[in-house]
Design a protein around this nucleic acid. Structure first.
Lengths: 217, 217
DNA sequence: TTATGATTGTGAAAAATAGAACAAACATTG
DNA sequence: CAATGTTTGTTCTATTTTTCACAATCATAA
């Protein structure tokens, strides 16, 4: 897989690193809420289940954040990572497919805590259009392009059936969406400049099932 | 991250490979249903959005499946991959946390099509216990160990809030679960022999938000 | 049958990722 | 203040993953 990379100064950082940074931020916020003010890479790494070297290495792509001999100021590091990841200003996203999974994501409380907010939801099913989920009215899928463009949304989440996913993704892209989180069990082929992240629950479980089978022998 | 590996004959195969194999199988089934009998690595790779070499290389860990100069018999390859991944016999799993996301997964129709079946669901919330979701009655979380052990379940899916995830995972492990799919936004630290796959929707979107921010500059 | 074109499977090279090792910087203690 | 212990940031090394290159095999057509 040719993993997408992003320019940072002169270095290129893989999205695996970015995801880890996001999980660091997640746990740092917990520490912050618990009143912890300073943390070392060692103790945080233990909390995260990774090596302390990986933590420091990941941070090093974006500069020095700690104090040698001391550790990291939780507040400061949280703020820096928040800024780095663009998690400071509330990130809105559009969701296509207000079925079971889509509805669950709309109502997913953690997202709000992480400053991520569903701004519009769409469905082509007449029975779902107009339905109010957690205060958000499901709109007609035919209005997706207009709304996404008007609201200036950049992230799309796809929860439609596999056979509809490709077309939905293309329409999102044409409306200005440049990053897509795809839950549909199918690959999405789209312009290089649009980033697609796939989460296929079936694939995840099937991979685990292989692992289970191996352990049995 | 030290990615888990599994022994195959004398070779070790990463779980990334296994996940890709699962996605190959997914698309092969679609081809099979569409009446395609033979496919080349090139055309399938195009469908999957990867390189044809990666497809062949991934297969090569488990032996030769194709015919040189011709390609792959869709039926045969589907069967072999199904056997390889253990996707032949129905894989049952236990789910903890019958909230919005948990319920959505219980009702996720694709899972059934992939021979993956929810066998038991648990929650500690009195209001959810006894609730019937898609024919399955949500059981009391305190009975989890007993049920999981009795039914011989090996895969657990965690959809509980972050602060409960660690404990739930440990209890699952103690009951014989050896592979966990964790949707809770937290890391799970557990015995090495239990494989944990994390899907943190917040992290996924936050990583995309970084990508969006980069594209803007 | 023989030449040609297509496609697989794989060893070797390249790229990317993770890990080890250590100097530099800081705090603390005597 | 000096010595000691801690922790970061980074260079260098090892490992893993991906990609390249090409021989081997098969079908087809002349």
């Amino acid at each position: 897989m040719t993993s997408r990379r992003v320019l940072t100064g002169s270095k290129q950082v893989s999205l695996e690193v970015i995801k880890r940074l996001s999980s660091y931020l997640r746990d740092l916020k917990t520490l912050e809420n618990n009143g912890v003010t300073v943390v070392s890479s060692g103790s945080l790494a233990e909390l995260l289940g990774i090596s302390s070297v990986q933590f420091r290495k990941d941070l090093s792509y974006f500069g020095p954040f700690g104090k040698k001999g001391v550790g990291y100021n939780v507040c400061t590091l949280t703020a820096k990572l928040t800024e780095l990841l663009g998690a400071g200003d509330c990130m809105g996203f559009a969701l296509a497919g207000a079925g079971k999974l889509g509805s669950a994501i709309i109502q997913y409380s953690s997202l709000q805590r992480f400053n991520i907010k569903i701004m519009a939801a769409f469905d082509s099913d007449r029975r779902k259009i107009g339905k109010k989920i957690d205060g958000l009215v499901v709109a007609d899928a035919k209005d997706m392009e207009t709304t996404v463009r008007t609201m200036g949304l950049k992230i799309g989440v796809i929860c439609v059936p596999a056979k509809a996913a490709q077309q939905v993704a293309e329409r999102m892209a044409s409306a200005g969406i440049i990053a897509v989180l795809n839950f549909a069990p199918t690959e999405i082929k789209i312009l290089k400049k649009v980033h697609v992240s796939n989460v296929d629950i079936c694939v995840e479980i099937e991979a685990l099932s292989y692992f289970v089978r191996q352990s049995a022998t």
